[in-house]
Amino acid sequence: MPKIKLAEKTVELIREICAQFNNQETELINVLHQVQHKLGYLPAEVQEVIAKELNASVAKVYGVVTFYSFFTMLPQGQHPISICMGTACYVRGAEKVLTEFKRQLGIEVGQTSADGKFSLSCLRCVGACGLAPVVLVGEKVYGRVSPQQVSKIIAEYQDGCASAQSA
């Protein structure tokens, strides 16, 4: 992973978040949630700052970041696409939908497209099992998605802005 240099402003932001939680090591997960919410991801350099502020080892912070699936060390695409791979979606054909997304975007799960527009991930059950299979683009939920609809969904975001139309 290429090294990145954090802007002074970013370091300050991380420090502020740690201070909100009284620099307590036991608040590490809350701190990580807040920082990821602001920065979008948690690269190694950010983890180093957090470790220092909470007086914890970098190894511990890294251990926690990599343990939980919600935290990511890679920047997400402008439009993160998540395919629900819960059991209800799986038996209603989510795998075929995922394969089609992979094929059309030319990326694997966990990767971001070359233009930075889309990233692809799987998640376990959004709880909208009545709409299975379900795909999330950002916060928007698409229900009863078939492989044939994949190109239409991607096209909605190709021009840079999402259309207000529903799936």
Partner: peptide
């Protein structure tokens, strides 16, 4: 307290460790 996506945290001892950061 917020979970961060780990199925094993449904187990009570794991859940408690997660709440402790």
């Amino acid at each position: 307290r917020y979970g961060a996506g780990a199925f094993v945290c449904g187990e009570e001892t794991a859940l408690i460790h997660s709440m402790e950061g």
